[in-house]
Design a protein around this nucleic acid. Structure first.
Length: 568
RNA sequence: GCCGAUGUAGCUCAGUCGGUAGAGCAACUGAUUCGUAAUCAGUAGGUCACCGGUUCAAUUCCGGUCAUCGGCUCCA
């Protein structure tokens, strides 16, 4: 029987604990599970670990594995378990025993090491295969900041050294795509101390890509029947009191600013502004649905330790929209949102998606059960009629409504959640939104909050990593770079540039005094989709020698280049 | 925020067991006018993140601050 990766990794974590105990006999053990791509074990140790310790632990583990210690299991009743763990002086394990509250507990033993454990394990440590300790970090006991911080050692294990090496290579490949590295290298954006952590400066090339994304986004929304809004970055405290943000979201909001003795807050969300636009006049059922979209920049306080490049920031732009509709319209509106969503994700190169439906929380929720049922059914039907596989997170919805989250898969198989479609039963109540129905009475509309790309900043980061900086031609900040061979042809190159610019082609000229090989190299490093070499030969023929990402395309005239780039 | 690591030229990094620093690339100047992944030479460029302490002397040692990086969900 080949052991599973889970068994291998879980067993490896025991071996790690064994090695740690050999090094620190007083170590207190936390938990040591197998995880998605490896394993970890948490320890309470007399001193902090260094990278050198990892190397030592790793070789200690290797020798334990080489010994081929057999795993065996036995159970003890609760009191025997407690006596044993108290004798071993393992307070964290005792806490686990207490929490699990069982009659009997199982133990696994290999060589001198015994651990309270559910199992299963491999037959002997020799079955563990190849291991590697990756890093050491702090982790709160049971994930709570109120508890003591333990030292967590992460590692991974595979059946063979070859598989382990392949994993490590994948990590290196992913590192090469890091949007923070490429963002600097390609001069797309920066984050600077003088501006503030988590605040993004979009440089010309990044801003160009963003403007293309936004143009596409706006047009797609107009075509789908949306209207576009702009709203301010700050709003009075009254607004946030009414919306409830000051009571349930204040820890994520920037501190208030006072102007003329009135308090204002930077917006953490766009919703209240959109609601106020809707309320600025009275709508009848004939006017619905309203589809109001905004590329709205919001500011949220994120704890300093969680900021990460473009992925987790303090100021970002949501591609936000709110749909206000009647009960009858809910289902088709949701279906249309999904259609727009998938076509947009597809346009950006993401065609593998996963859908997650989150339903009403068991305890805390607002809105009557009727609305929850209607909405959950609408979400479910929309997913099913789109023919998509999905998972249900029962009780995983927000307190204000059920939602769909959509995850996309990037070029190296990583998943990212960008799109979200959420019902909101809270704000219509708080703001007392109404529309006049056919009966002449006021009715409460349904409000659907949705974002397709999520945050433009984050989505840009995902795009950079997905394409490894090699944006498809329609998104590339520079679509073609003209490389002159010698100074004599610079005027001709400028003329070609002018003609391409007239056709809305994003084109630059490298007229530097360098050899053509050097310019090619530069162009490739900049990940420009097309390079056009212009020398005496081209002047005579009136062409450009074009080189695409997949190789030489030969001599083309201006019209052919325009055609090539427009079709790409 | 917490744990750990890191912060030296625009970038990537070396270095100083305490005596104010160096390379490659980039930039600039000059030469070269070149045909598909790096032409040659020269010049310039640093408060060694910031603030404080110890010391005759701190980039180096100590403390603090700021920022960045890896983690802080995966339940015996």
């Amino acid at each position: 029987m080949t052991p599973t990766l889970f068994e291998i990794r879980h067993s490896a974590s025991h071996v790690l604990a064994q090695a740690v105990l050999a090094m620190f006999p007083d170590a207190k053990l936390g938990i040591g599970p197998a995880i998605d791509d490896g394993f970890y074990y948490d320890f309470d140790l007399p001193r902090t670990l260094t990278p050198d310790d990892l190397a030592e632990l790793e070789s200690k583990m290797a020798s334990i594995i080489a010994e081929g210690q057999e795993f065996s299991t036995y159970t003890l009743d609760r009191s025997a378990t407690e006596t044993h763990l108290a004798h071993e002086n393992q307070p964290y394990k005792l806490e686990i025993v207490n929490d699990l509250n069982l009659d009997t507990y199982s133990f696994y033993k290999n060589g001198p090491f015994v651990d309270l454990c559910r199992g299963p394990h491999v037959r002997t440590t020799a079955d563990i295969g190849a291991i590697k300790l990756l890093r050491v970090s702090g982790a709160y006991w049971r994930g709570s900041e109120k508890n003591k911080m333990l030292q967590r050692i992460y590692g991974t294990a595979y059946h063979t050294q070859g598989e382990l090496d392949a994993y490590l290579t994948r990590i290196e490949e992913a590192a090469k795509r890091d949007h923070r590295v490429l963002g600097k290298e390609l001069d797309l954006f920066s984050i600077q101390d003088d501006i503030g952590p988590g605040l993004i400066l979009w440089h010309p090339k990044g801003a160009r890509v963003r403007s293309i994304i936004e143009d596409y986004w706006r047009n797609a929304h107009f075509r789908a029947g949306y209207d576009v809004l702009y709203t301010p970055h700050v709003g009075r405290s009254n607004l946030w009191e009414t919306s409830g943000h000051l009571s349930f979201y204040s820890e994520n909001m920037y501190a208030k600013m006072s102007v003329d003795d009135v308090d204002y807050y930077a917006k953490p969300m766009n919703c209240p502004f959109h609601v106020k636009i809707v309320q600025n006049r009275q709508y009848s059922y004939r006017d619905l649905p309203l589809r109001l979209a905004e590329l709205g920049t919001v500011y949220r306080y994120e704890r300093s330790g969680v900021l990460h490049g473009l992925m987790r920031v303090r100021g970002f732009t949501q591609d936000d929209a709110h749909i206000v509709c009647t009960p009858d319209q809910v289902e088709s509106e949701i279906a249309d949102v999904l259609t727009l969503c998938f076509s947009m994700l597809d346009r950006f190169g993401f065609n593998k998606v996963k859908v997650f439906l989150s339903t009403r929380p068991k305890e805390k929720y607002v809105g009557d059960l009727d609305r929850w049922a209607t909405s959950e059914t609408a979400l479910k039907n929309a997913i099913e009629s789109a023919g998509l596989p999905y998972e249900i997170d029962d009780g995983g919805g927000a307190f204000y409504g059920p939602k769909i989250d959509i995850k996309i898969e990037d070029a190296i198989g990583r998943q990212w959640q960008c799109s979200t479609v959420q019902f909101d039963f809270n704000l219509p109540e708080r703001f007392d939104m109404t529309y006049v129905g056919p009966d002449g009475q006021r009715h409460r509309p349904y409000m659907i909050h949705r974002a397709l790309l999520g945050s433009i900043e984050r989505f840009f980061g995902i795009l950079i990593e997905h394409y490894e900086g090699k944006f498809p031609t329609w998104l590339a900040p520079v679509q073609i770079k003209l490389l002159s061979v010698g100074q004599d042809v610079v005027p001709f190159s400028r003329e070609i540039q002018r003609r391409l610019l007239e056709q809305d082609i994003r084109v630059v000229v490298d007229s530097s005094d360098e050899k053509i090989g050097y310019k090619i190299r530069q162009g490739l490093n900049e990940r420009v989709p097309y390079l056009g070499v212009i020398g005496k030969r081209e002047i005579e023929a009136g062409t450009i020698s074009v080189r695409g990402r997949d190789g030489d395309l030969g001599p083309l005239n201006v019209e052919q280049v325009v055609d090539l780039i427009r079709k790409a």
